Simulated scan of single mutants.
Amino acid sequence: MIAENDFIPSKYSTTIEKGTFKWSAPSNIALVKYWGKKENQVPANPSISFTLNNCKTITELSFEKKANPSDDFSFDLLFEGKPKEDFKPKIQKFFERVLVYLPFLKDYHFTIDTQNTFPHSSGIASSASGMSALAMNLMSLEKALHPEMTEHYFYQKASFLARLGSGSACRSIRGNVVEWGNHAEISGSSDLFGVIFPTKIHSNFQNYQDTILLVDKGEKQVSSTVGHDLMHNHPFAERRFEQAHENLSKIKAILENGNLEEFIKIVESEALTLHAMMMTSMPYFILMKPNTLEIINKIWKFRNETQIPICFTLDAGANVHVLYPENVTETVLQFIKDELVVYCQNGQYICDVIGNGVEQLK
């Protein structure tokens, strides 16, 4: 079993004064959801997700050795080229959490310049893509300080670090299906980092499509961090955690055998269970909007009438992810334009597809 201590480096074999790295990292959408976490960003239950391709964060990290080493972190944060002060506390907290694993953090002044390929306030979670992109850049610097590092360790530690910034970020490092959290049937699975789905995925899920309908682009009234914490005394928490383990076993078999009907049942049930947990916590809250429900009902009606294997899932928000196989893309997009766009804020939606994870950019 790999432990946290395995990610604490011994002495580095080389030095580096300054440089720049640049990575892109995608968002991901969970099929089996995690909701609730323990100390140190450890999930209360395992989860599995599709890595996306088009919704991503691109982050450039420039670094220069400080003339006078100090006991503080030193960094500037730019969003789309402009200073973004309100992001800084999150990065500060992340640096504090990962310092023991990246002891060079206080030796440099960093400039973090980040941008998203999707509209920032679109209600698409950018913490997963943002934290995984930052983790990749920091690992590139560590690899420069320690060139002997293996590729396997490089990506595993990146996932481990990303998790400490945002839990689901650990599922954005590699593609195209990633599992996170100890699970009896997934070899190598861990609460500490995401692992690539270990067996062959059925051709039905190759290039699976995800069209994201932007129902509400406002700030959520309850943050995910607060929502996760409300699982601590939740009356249904224990049963929910068991259910997630059971559903992960089921979806593992489905991804191998290609049964789309069973896939739809698990994925939609998981989405609604996630929101049921929010509605039954204390304090309770609802993140769905009336238009979220309108879309769900339209999808059910369309699927019933056409037998096309289209389904929905939700994150902790009002937006709807419409999932469907590549071979029905034309018909589904027509349906979305004809019947669902009317429920999107300003008619906005984003077409995405399963992707392969992070990418280093020149």
Rank of each mutant, 00 (worst) to 15 (best):
A3K: 14
E4G: 00
D6F: 03
I8R: 11
T14H: 14
T15I: 14
E17D: 13
F21G: 01
A25L: 13
A25G: 11
A25F: 08
A25W: 04
A30V: 07
L31C: 08
V32G: 00
E39N: 06
A44V: 00
F50H: 04
T51N: 12
N54R: 14
K56H: 14
T57I: 05
S70A: 05
D76W: 01
L77Y: 15
L78A: 03
G81N: 07
K82N: 14
F87M: 11
I91C: 03
K93F: 03
L102E: 14
F104Q: 05
L105K: 06
G123K: 01
S126Q: 09
G130N: 10
L134S: 08
A135L: 09
S140P: 00
K143D: 05
A144Y: 09
P147Q: 11
Y153C: 04
F154H: 10
L164E: 10
S166P: 02
G167V: 02
S172W: 00
R174P: 00
E179Q: 04
E185I: 06
D191P: 03
L192H: 04
F193Q: 03
T199F: 00
T199N: 10
I201V: 15
L214Y: 06
V215M: 11
V222N: 12
V222K: 09
H228T: 06
H228G: 10
L230D: 01
F236R: 10
R239K: 14
N247T: 01
K252Q: 13
A253D: 13
N259R: 12
V267M: 03
V267K: 02
V267Q: 04
E268S: 09
L272I: 02
H275F: 00
A276H: 11
M288C: 11
E294Y: 12
I299A: 05
F302I: 08
F312P: 03
A316P: 01
A316G: 10
V322R: 07
L323A: 07
T331M: 12
K337L: 11
D338T: 04
E339P: 01
L340Q: 03
L340Y: 11
V341M: 06
V341A: 11
Y343R: 02
Y343F: 15
N346E: 14
I350T: 00
D352S: 11
E359C: 10
